[in-house]
Design a protein around this nucleic acid. Structure first.
Lengths: 239, 239
DNA sequence: GCTCAACAACTAGCATGCCAGACGCTAGTC
DNA sequence: GACTAGCGTCTGGCATGCTAGTTGTTGAGC
C-alpha cells in the first residue's frame, strides 16, 4: 500500500534519499535509541527513563513517547502500561525463527530475481562481488560485513520488492543486535564469498531454482553459525 | 524479542487471551479505524479528520494520533507532515509481492511444522478440516473463509513461530482489505478444501518436503485467483 | 520474626494549547 | 486570460500539566 512516506515518520524505515524533508524530533530520538540498543549501550532489560532522556536531549516527553512507541512496534522495546518501558530481552529461540523467516524469504526472492533482474542490477552485483573479494583479501572484516549486507539488499531492491525489503530490514535489525552482542567472529568469510558467488552465478544464468537453492544453502550456513555461537554463550540470552 | 505485550498497545497485534488488561483508548481507536479501512468504510485516499474523530469519539486528539501512527507503521495510513493523514491506496503490484512473501513463508513454515507439530496440533487441524467440509457442504462461504484463516493460523502457532505469525498477520490485513474490496467470489472453495487436505496429510506424515510443496501449490493457486480478479477490476487500484 | 495493608514514588496515558509548515484561494500583475 | 505572490486556513508536531494505575516499601498488627 504505501505511497511513499516521509522521512521515517511513523515508521522505522530508512529515509528515502529523494526525500529532502528534515527528520522530526521523534525521528531523531528513534534513531538515537535504536542505535543505542543495537550497539549494546542500552542492555536488554534496562528501563528507559523518558523524563531523563527528554531533559538530556532538550525536548519534551512527546517525541520520546512517539519514538518508543515505534520501537515497541518493532519489538526492540517493551512497554508495560503504567509501569515502564524496557529494552527488549533476547531469546535464543528467536535466532532460529528469524533465520527461518529470512531464509525462506530471501530464497524465494532470489528465485524471483533470477527472472526480473536487469542487466544493470546484475552488473552491480558483480561489482559488489569484486569489492567483497578485495575486502576478503585485505582481511577487512567490517568492510566485508557491510558489503555482505549490501549484496543481499541489492537483490531485493533489484527485484523491486518493497514490502519484503521492509520485513527483512526489520529482521536484520534484530539479527544485527544479536550479532553485535555475540561479537560474531568473521571466520566464515571465504565461505560466504563463495556462496555469494554461487547466488550471483545463478541469477546471471536466470535460473530461478538454482538461485533459490544457492541462497537457501548460503543462509542455512549462516544459521548454523549463529546457533553455534549462541550455544557457546548462553548467558547472553534470557529465558 | 518481545516479552509479551499488553493489549495491543504500541502494536497492532491481537490481544493475548491471557491478557486481561483493558484496552487503552488508543487501542480502541486503532481497532476502530482499522476495521473501517478494511471494510471499505474509509476508502483509499480519503483524509482522516483527527479533530472531528476526537470529537465524535469523545476524547482528545492524543489517542487518535497514537492510533494513526500505528496504522501508518502498518502502511494502512499515510501521514503527510503538516498536511494530513490519508487512507493508503492500493496498488495491484502489492498483490503479487504480498502473495510472494506469504507463499515463501508459509511453505517454509509448513516444512518446519511437519517436524514440530504435536499430536494435539495435528488433531486440531483434523477437526478444522471437518468443519471446513461441513461449511463447504452447507455453502457457508463466510464460515469457510473464517475456517480457512484459522487453518493457516493453526499451523503457524503449532510451529511456535511468533515473529512469523505477526508478519503474516500484517500481510493478511492487507490482503484482506483487497479481498473485501474485490468481493472475491468463493468459487474455488472445493479446490481450497482439497489443497488444505493435502497439506494436513503431509504434516501428519511428518514429511517436510511434501508439506512445503503442498502449501506452496495451495498458495500459488490463491495467488492466481487474486491476480485474475485484480485484472478484471483494475479501477479499484491506484497507480 | 512474619504478614499484610496503607502509602509514597514512580510510570504511561491522556487533555489541551500553541507553533510551524503545507496548501488552496484570491487578488494583483503582466 | 494566464501567471504569480501573498495571505488565510488547514494540518501534524510539540510542550506541558494532570490522571490513574502499578510497584516497592514501610510500618503496624499479630
Amino acid at each position: 500500500m504505501t505511497r511513499q512516506m516521509r522521512g521515517g515518520e511513523a515508521a522505522g524505515r530508512p529515509v528515502q534519499p529523494s526525500d529532502t524533508r528534515r527528520a522530526s524530533k521523534a525521528d531523531q530520538v528513534y534513531e538515537n535509541i535504536k542505535e543505542a540498543i543495537l550497539s549494546g549501550g542500552l542492555e536488554p532489560g534496562v528501563a528507559i527513563d523518558k523524563i531523563a532522556l527528554s531533559e538530556r536531549l532538550g525536548m519534551s516527553r512527546f517525541p520520546i513517547t512517539t519514538a518508543i512507541n515505534r520501537l515497541a512496534y518493532e519489538r526492540l522495546v517493551v512497554i508495560e502500561p503504567q509501569h515502564g518501558s524496557f529494552v527488549a530481552k533476547i531469546s535464543a529461540e528467536d535466532v532460529r525463527e528469524l533465520m527461518l523467516i529470512r531464509r525462506s524469504l530471501e530464497a524465494e526472492i532470489a528465485g524471483d530475481a533470477a527472472l526480473r533482474l536487469g542487466a544493470e542490477a546484475l552488473a552491480e552485483l558483480e561489482r559488489s562481488l569484486r569489492y567483497q573479494e578485495a575486502a576478503a583479501a585485505a582481511r577487512d572484516y567490517a568492510g566485508f560485513y557491510a558489503l555482505d549486507v549490501e549484496f543481499h539488499r541489492l537483490i531485493i531492491v533489484g527485484a523491486q520488492l518493497r514490502h519484503a525489503k521492509e520485513i527483512l530490514e526489520g529482521i536484520r535489525t534484530h539479527l544485527e543486535r544479536i550479532r553485535r552482542l555475540l561479537l560474531t567472529p568473521p571466520g566464515r568469510l571465504p565461505n560466504t564469498l563463495a556462496e555469494h558467488r554461487s547466488v550471483a552465478d545463478a541469477l546471471r544464468a536466470r535460473n530461478p531454482a538454482a538461485a533459490r537453492e544457492a541462497m537457501r544453502t548460503h543462509l542455512i550456513e549462516t544459521t548454523v553459525l549463529f546457533e553455534t555461537i549462541a550455544r557457546e554463550r548462553p548467558n547472553l540470552f534470557s529465558a
